[in-house]
């Protein structure tokens, strides 16, 4: 991938920066210039905000046929995640046995390598999600 193309999105890929519509308050990820609900009324009112770094699994799959650059980690889990504040995104799920994942499972964002331009090129980093760590002692 072209370096500037990845670089210009790192705020969202590192820190889940999305937008809040100044008109209706809806959160979107990734950032949008126009709110899908308010249309023209939202133009100029889309404020960049970091979104919640935890959510739940909406659906998932284990990828066995992986594209180039992802074959080193296959099979790997991919999911649609709904963040606590409502926005949805697509992410790998790590630190999770494919037998243990389920729709509705709580997950939280981590920071991992997404890929690289070969052995001597730029390394791309960003979010992958993992099962949420328990807030209290496990029983």
């Amino acid at each position: 991938m072209a370096i500037p193309r990845f670089w210009r999105e790192i705020q969202s890929r590192y820190n889940l920066v999305g937008t809040r519509c100044g008109n209706c308050g809806t959160l979107d990820f990734p950032p949008r210039d126009v709110c899908p609900k308010c249309g023209r009324k939202s133009v100029g009112k889309m404020e960049k905000v970091p979104l919640s770094d935890s959510g739940t699994v909406v659906s998932y799959t284990t990828i066995h046929h992986a594209p180039k650059g992802f074959d080193g980690t296959k099979p790997y889990l991919l999911a649609i995640v709904e963040l606590k504040d409502g926005a949805r995104l697509t992410s790998q799920i790590i630190d999770c046995d494919p037998a243990d994942i389920a729709i509705g499972m709580p997950v939280e964002a981590t920071f991992r390598k997404l890929g690289q331009d070969g052995a001597s090129g730029i390394i791309y980093y960003g979010y992958k999600f993992r099962p949420s760590l328990p807030a209290t002692e496990e029983t």
Partner: peptide, 11 residues
């Protein structure tokens, strides 16, 4: 893990 390095561990 295969997607971890000093940068991800540091973060």
């Amino acid at each position: 893990g295969p997607d971890e390095d000093v940068i991800t561990i540091s973060v």
